[in-house]
Design a protein around this nucleic acid. Structure first.
Lengths: 245, 245
DNA sequence: GCATCGACTTGTATGGTACTTGTCTATTCA
DNA sequence: TGAATAGACAAGTACCATACAAGTCGATGC
């Protein structure tokens, strides 16, 4: 699909700031068409895609402009899997198989920095009734006090916790791979020993206190993480990105 | 049964993310027929099998697409492995086991947008003499013309290609998981069927032309991607969801 | 300052071409 | 008999080329 490729190029160009002239104006549709060797209709189609994403806007007779305020947020935007699913047009569903309060132990206690009780929720995420992830979530008990089993089945913790007064801050994720154990296999409808993509996510609140720890185990045949970088930093000082050993 | 084998091939291809171009589009039935030397009817039969499994869907007149049920979550920045290793203080080494020029085929041809020759390099990446990744890299032949086997063993393509006049632009990555096959196992020193973390990276130059495609397969027990995100986008103000069903 | 003009822009619509899926039928091969 | 092949047609999509209305913006002349 030509217009999708074109939208990618434009998105990258906008994100890296080399969009066009001052004032955030993009080249005209005709100019873009010449440059990318595409017709104006196709250029328009991709621009309208970007407009739907809130990245650009147009003024009739004037031109296209990169949307003010949200300049390069699109790349840094975090989407939950649920959101990604809805954006893709699928119907997400959650099936809770565990809902219990228990004392924090081991690495959960360490990550959430508490020795008190935590609410532990185990559930299977489905897209159009096909299971694609087993998710286990831990939250400090005082934050989960008002949550029912039906609540966590109907909504995500990102939707629920704000009602408990939580304002979300930074997030750290760790992505890895693992093999499906017997439980995973049964819940995901795959055979034991098949490949899983794992994601451990620790979410902090606005005051940088850990409030949510989630362990995701995705079917590798149905899941991938997409990353777009505006440009390669040529041997720039990098944050530690890969654990080794 | 020809169509069952074909379905297997397609399933593997979809799972490993090298399905097709933007938007998750697969090659057309005719193209697949040519590639696998099967008639269109046979190709269709296997595709319909995959559709029954919920893996793909078709739009009449448009083509076949991998189902949105296969989640793709977009993430923010991650760093390259080589850079992260050096930052961690390990001594990186590369052992080249394949170095050949060959005509671009299949998904490589599509991604690099060329039907001409490509330089294909297969190598094992080691940290302190312990193998941790099998990496396969493809570059258009004209860019790799001046590279020797010793070159690619001594340096990364990100260091080498600028000498060929390449200025790097955006990068797209796709992270997934897979099982180690016999070759992987031997090269990484793990047993066949153990978990691998995979990363497929397509690098563009400054003019947004694809110049480098790399396929990384990491030992899952030694590698994970660490990602830090500034903050979570608070739950979107429930847009009117366009549901196409 | 003010109106006007012209070259530009987006918004919208049309016809045409090449390609795709969906669905047939007839045929070959084991 | 069943599975694969070969070919043909309808219906639908993506894209291109073109055209025209409507809006913007700056230069020009008064």
């Amino acid at each position: 699909m030509r217009y999708l490729d074109l939208a990618d190029s434009l998105r990258a160009r906008i994100a890296s700031g080399r969009a066009g002239s001052a004032g955030g104006a993009l080249p005209s549709e005709s100019e873009l068409g010449e440059e990318f060797k595409a017709s104006r209709v196709t250029v328009r189609r991709s621009l309208e895609l970007l407009r739907a994403e809130g990245l650009v806007l147009s003024r009739r007779g004037a031109g296209w402009f990169i949307s003010p305020g949200t300049v390069r947020q699109s790349l840094a935007k975090v989407t939950t899997v649920e959101a990604a699913l809805e954006a893709a047009g699928a119907t997400p569903r959650r099936a809770v198989y565990e809902f219990s309060y228990e004392p924090a132990s081991g690495h959960v206690a360490k990550l959430l920095k508490t020795r008190g009780e935590v609410l532990k929720v185990g559930r299977v995420n489905l897209a159009d009734d096909h299971p694609f992830a087993v998710v286990t979530v831990w939250v400090p008990a005082d934050l989960g006090r008002d949550l029912s089993r039906a609540d966590v089945e109907a909504a995500t913790f990102y939707d629920l916790l704000p009602f408990a007064g939580v304002r979300f801050g930074r997030v750290t994720q760790s992505i890895g791979a693992d093999l499906a154990n017997a439980d995973d296999a049964k819940r995901l409808g795959v055979s034991k020993g098949s490949a899983l993509l794992t994601c451990r996510r620790l979410t902090f609140d606005h005051d940088d206190r850990p409030v949510l720890f989630a362990d995701h185990r995705y079917r590798a045949d149905r899941t991938s993480f997409e990353i777009e970088l505006p440009s390669v930093a040529s041997s720039a000082p990098t944050k530690p990105g890969v654990r080794h050993g």
